[in-house]
Design a protein around this nucleic acid. Structure first.
Lengths: 121, 121
DNA sequence: TTGACATATGCCTATATGGGAATGTATTGT
DNA sequence: ACAATACATTCCCATATAGGCATATGTCAA
């Protein structure tokens, strides 16, 4: 068998980096497809296809307004991922991973892996 | 191009349901491969291959003891996923995801729509 | 060394993918 | 009606699976 479909669940859908970028971009407010194309610098068909996947798993919602399709992130659909990963929180608090990791942690202390949701460009 | 490799990052690695099960099983304590085989009822080669993927992205650590390979989940590697999904928490708190929810919200608090759907040219 | 055991890797195949290019569809303006 | 605009869909293709099966590697015991 092959890999599970990208549309099988939110886990598979967000595995694609571009789709994560789209979700970040659409988190604050709804946007027409054209805006996403400009922002991510992808071909329009690619964006439409990514949106199709996100839509199929409920990660985005869409609304038509004239010729435009306004998409927005449906944060609720991301919640299961947050919940699942959160189950491991108690372990990363009490676990001493490895000597090597501790050393790395000290070195790159500022690398907090924070994702920023830029409003406009 | 095809899909990104399962070993490209934790997002892709955990997209596979079986690998998530493995991570859950190995969260509390280390286990030899044989235990995972029995637990998940998969063929041993499949388990080994899944473990290889998880190992490549740092989601599990391994230790040899005689003929056995003891694997355990490295929760730290799951943290980035938790952090990323957590960025959307403020949205699922303020967003009304469905008509049903909106109706309930109105009844309970008489709360107005919090998200502004701004238009842009 | 030989054999049993535990695990890893290689090979094969059906399947789904993401990007590019072309085309289809819906809506608006004239 | 017709052209333009905004998206969506289809087709093609190189690539990476995941599972099944066979085989290789590594370790221990006799």
């Amino acid at each position: 068998m092959a890999r599970a479909a990208t549309t099988s669940d939110a886990f598979n859908a967000v595995a694609e980096p571009r789709r994560r970028e789209i979700l970040e971009f659409l988190a604050n407010e709804e946007r027409p497809v054209g805006d996403i194309v400009l922002r991510l610098r992808l071909e329009q068909p690619s964006v439409s296809k990514h949106l199709r996947v996100l839509r199929d798993v409920g990660l985005v919602r869409v609304r038509r307004e004239g010729r435009n399709m306004f998409y927005r992130t449906n944060a609720e659909a991301i919640r299961p991922l947050h919940d699942w990963t959160g189950e491991f929180a108690r372990f990363w608090r009490h676990q001493l991973s490895s000597i090597k990791e501790r050393a790395e942690a000290k070195v790159k202390h500022g690398q907090a892996e924070a994702i920023s949701f830029k409003e406009e460009s």
